[in-house]
Amino acid sequence: MSNWLDAVLVLLMLTSLWLLGSSRLQACIRAVALQGALLGLIPLLSKWPDISLRLGAVAVVSMVIKAVVLPALLRRAVREVNVRNEVEPLVGFTTSLLLGIALWGIATHIAGRLPVDVPGLSPLLVPVAIFTVLCGFLLIVSRNTAVMQVIGYLGLENGIYVFGWAFAIEEPLLVEMGVLLDVFVAVFVMGITIHHLSREFDSIETDELASLKD
């Protein structure tokens, strides 16, 4: 199955690049949803064909949360604040893409140095995990709209999830549950923030938060 797993990992990587290169919030949400769906496939593919009930259940649950629930929440947030595009990011979309390729280089370099060696797992797993995390960071740092930052958080979290698989098959679920909780909180908080922000300021640009510093 390593072939299929590789294909999934490559797709995961491409969705990260898609996140970096797209200005439309809807497209980004779709990308992050796709990412969530792909993430659900990873445990199934890497353990194929002996899949325990528990593994299957967790995979399905995480797929539902990441690919359906969270994107739906984000879509609602977008509808409420009525923004469709990331208009003026701090780092342009083309530059983000080029930076993405640089990050891919860095990720593969770091992955080569890390003493992670799980037999039978795709050698792509660790680089893709690190890359997804880095892309998440880049999104958070370089985008202005809060929705895009939430998407960045989700990407970051997806990366951590993949990373978990490199260490062990069962344990990451623990970590994962914790992180999922965090994200839920984050999404809620951001959702509320966005809601309030857009009511107070008619805009969801975090730049304008800076004006609160005095």
Binding site: I101, T108, P127
Partner: peptide, 10 residues
């Protein structure tokens, strides 16, 4: 053999 060769190529 290594990813670094791919980066060199790129």
């Amino acid at each position: 053999a290594a990813v670094s060769w791919a980066m060199l190529c790129v």
